[in-house]
Nucleic acid binder design. Sequence first.
RNA 1: UCCUCCAUAGCUCAGUUGGUUAGAGCGGCUGACUGUUAAUCAGUAGGUCCCUGGUUCGAGUCCAGGUGGGGGAGCCA
Length: 518
Amino acid sequence: MKPLFLPNKRQHTMQYIQDLAQYEGQEVTLKGWAANRRTGKGLVFLILRDGTGFCQTVLSQEVIPDDRFDMAYKLPLESAIEVTGKVVADDRQIGGYEVQATNIVLIHEAEEYPIAKKEHGVDFLMDHRHLWLRSRRQWAIMRVRNRLIYAIHNFFQEEGFVQMDTPIFTGNAVEGTSTLFETDFYGQPAYLSQSGQLYGEALAMALGKIYTFGPTFRAEKSKTRRHLSEFWMIEPEMAFYDLEQNMDLIERFMQHIVNDVVTHCHFELEQLERDTTVLKKINQPFPRLTYDKAVALLKGEEDWEGRNAIALLEEDLKQVQNDLAEKRAKIEEYEGLLAKGGLKKGKMNYYRATADKLKQEVKELEERASNIPQWIESAKNFKHGNDLGGSDETVLTRLFDCPVMVYNWPKDIKAFYMKRCEDDDKYVKGVDVLAPEGFGEIIGGAERENNKALLIERIQHEGLPMEVFEWYLDLRRFGSVPHAGFGLGLERMVAWLCNLHHVRETIPFPRFYGRLNP
RNA sequence: UCCUCCAUAGCUCAGUUGGUUAGAGCGGCUGACUGUUAAUCAGUAGGUCCCUGGUUCGAGUCCAGGUGGGGGAGCCA
């Protein structure tokens, strides 16, 4: 009988870095690129990367023929090579193994590589995004993103959700609030979708529980660390779910995907120097606050388990100021030593590097120190009825060490399709999920208005063109049922998991205001 | 659209109240070093100080306008 799968021919001649543990003490052949190179007399340390990981290979002049050793000695970074050698365990090495080479073959000698080993500015790196993705850090982020995507599909598939796609071209700019990208659709204006939600509702009425996973477009000229013009959104929609069931699902969903990434991306998160203690605290019931309660907490009028948001921030401010004083003193100390002179070059460089690093930290702390009083002011003066701003989210989430859900929002600041609360028609059954550590809103959801008359009223009140919603109103004409759903921003989730400063690092080729290439 | 900060070597940055020939580290190149971890050490090449105009005996430095970028508001995931 023929085997179901033919053995991969390459398996006999080539191995991958991620599998090195299986080959300890044996000879392997790795194909990849030279990520870094250090030389000593008669020795070359070559960090090889092959996509699955990074590994130090050691080439000794005693073993490698002279012409090949010279080639390795001068090998430009990012040249493609094939290295054969013995796998040896070594705790000091990345991945825990190194390969003691017996042979090296050049596949392609690279030109001078533009990305240096030391730091670069954001704009330079973004211009070289196609190459930047090769770096260790970006490699780790992309692996986390991949695992997260896998975990999301896994969760919904196991729960009996059907994955369905909604159109990217849409005929009308519906929700009315955010600006959309306009394109030409055979002579008609068309807009790139800002959300698949309304279509998701139609699909839920056909398939029961569905989720979409696709690109979404917003034409806002946002220049912040939380926004992209093109991003990926996951939007589940469930027939016969109310707000509470929606929140239950969100909680289980978040717990599943965070746990999955923490267990399967241990190495990647370590590479990113991500402290995972907060991520591990995900396995607790998320606090559920009504908007009113959230506002009271934000303004410091109420405490949460003995903690006061404003008081906590005032303590943070003191801490920041202490850190600042400490770091400034250290900088002075190092600069004093440098000014004295008479130091060895190595020591001088070390002091200078340390002082530079401290200066960077001081800059960040100074920003925090000037921000916190503003945040406190803005939180104290928050006006009931407004939407939570970025700083308000930071202040509020400071009270918790896991995601927090804020529900029952004032009608006027939320979208027309949200179901109004039975006991108070000034409120709607929306829910926002705020990530801890100041990462802000990562999920927005709601129970949908299933009463046709009330929905029509809201559409008219918002001044939206009724004819566009005729098909949508059909969902309330033919078997209208309670239903709910939410939208998760993939990039914001990755940013939180990896503790990244900016969402632009969470997607291979980000698109945002001022960035269309590469 | 608004507020705010920034632009000096290939990269990251320093450059004092305006004053002679523009500075460092990394990267490149030449060499040293047999276990390096952003290796280290010695030497060497490398500049339209973003653009335009202005003030001045003199502008990287001051002023005005522009361009590009960072952060934030609004909007939201």
